[in-house]
Design a protein around this nucleic acid. Structure first.
Lengths: 232, 232
DNA sequence: AAATATAGTTAGATAAGCCTAACAATTATA
DNA sequence: TATAATTGTTAGGCTTATCTAACTATATTT
């Protein structure tokens, strides 16, 4: 049985090596930063995870997940995202409130519980932030998507997810009126200060690069995104 | 913020001093036994709880809850019983499965979460085992009830709760066909071996004293039980 | 009241997770 | 390539929650 802490290490590793970066390995410092602990702590812990065959690691080398570790991490993410969906869909929590609560709920281990919850929610594919929910085998759809920053001028796209799950960011998205599945068009990209202007419904909005980096979209051109899905 | 462990100590103390015994204090050994830890461990922990003003305690004395400790313990029990009700009513878990899962869920602290859950469940008064659920102020109805063992020969009563929440006991109750709110009549009490014979629907059942001690009933005579309720 | 039994305490250990401070290895750069 | 910067490791400490073993206080019984 994995501890609360071990699970958080594995979850962070999945996030860093599967979701965020394309390289399936990560250094001690990066992991420490993600978990807001000191590198010394990670050094110790990674040795422990290696002993349990959850990660591959050699002194002074990079950290990567074994199949076992990856599955365990993926299950934590499955639980997290299912609870988020429950809180949002059934208990009417706003999308900026659910992440923090799910940080605790994700550590409840019962497989039966989580599968019942999945059923109760009618097998949702995405959580309230637009992230795919791994299935009970730990497989996840990786949708073909990019950040708003990567969209070319003139292109039309659909907002499908957010990268940053912080309250501050999510409330800001609410404030300017954007919602998941909304269609937008990039009308201008300013070279000088990297501001992006988008057309959304009847309004024209100007967003910062920091903002645009944290919005995931699927472009009109590849709306057959479903066909591009793959499993991690 | 209380730790997982501290909460379990407080919960056990509420159970021992409010629900089970009438004396509002308990010894180190008894508490240790309840928590399945060694008395030495309790000795240490109780000192820590005293420092936090959660219990009253003097060396070699008895342990009792302060108002603060009692409220905290009651909230753990509220969370436990609401989660049990959720698991049973919404996720279709059987009554013998819910206790164990709720042991983990009860430690999720968010007051907002638990109050939303309460609302979602339509403010249930009792959990699946017939135990009253403390309200958001930590108040609880103590129903006027007794164990089946205490019922006199010839008396009619209604099953309202079980004392033992173990899978084994609950499955046994299921097996012999008893359900909460069922009416039964004590038709015989054998002096020699303390077996109790009850009439239940069309059947006559013989139950052991161990069994009868773990079934709570309200007698026909005092069916105005609601009027006898008090708050702890 | 003395002897015994029960109940409770203390001291010293251990394991998990974290820290700081000092050091070592690796990588980048002049 | 030598030096500097970055990255990672080790040693030693701290806290929480637990244990065992030895001891002490209180309660019961003869």
């Amino acid at each position: 049985m994995l501890s609360f802490t071990e699970e958080n290490y594995l979850k962070a590793l999945v996030q860093l090596t599967v979701f965020e970066e394309d390289r399936p390995e990560v250094g001690v410092n990066k992991l420490a930063e993600t978990l807001t602990v000191k590198p010394a702590t990670v050094s110790d812990m990674v040795r422990k995870l290696k002993d349990k065959s959850l990660v591959n690691y050699e002194k002074y080398g990079k950290i990567s997940l074994t199949k076992k570790g990856s599955l365990a991490g993926m299950m934590v993410i499955r639980r997290h995202r299912l609870w988020e969906t429950f809180l949002h869909n059934k208990l009417d929590f706003t999308w900026d409130e659910v992440h923090e609560l799910a940080e605790d709920l994700e550590h409840i281990h019962s497989k039966k519980l989580i599968n019942r919850l999945d059923q109760y929610l009618d097998y949702p594919e995405f959580d309230p932030h637009g992230d795919a929910i791994p299935n009970s085998e730990g497989e996840i759809m990786i949708p073909f998507r990019k950040t708003l920053s990567e969209v070319n001028e003139g292109e039309k796209c659909r907002i499908v997810a957010v990268k940053d799950n912080s309250t501050e960011f999510l409330q800001y998205v609410d404030k300017i009126g954007l919602q998941m599945q909304d269609e937008i068009t990039v009308t201008a990209k300013e070279e000088f200060d990297s501001l992006t202007t988008i057309q959304h419904k009847k309004n024209s909005l100007v967003v910062s690069p920091k903002f645009a980096d944290n919005i995931f979209v699927i472009c009109a051109k590849c709306l057959k995104a479903k066909e591009c899905n793959c499993y991690a």
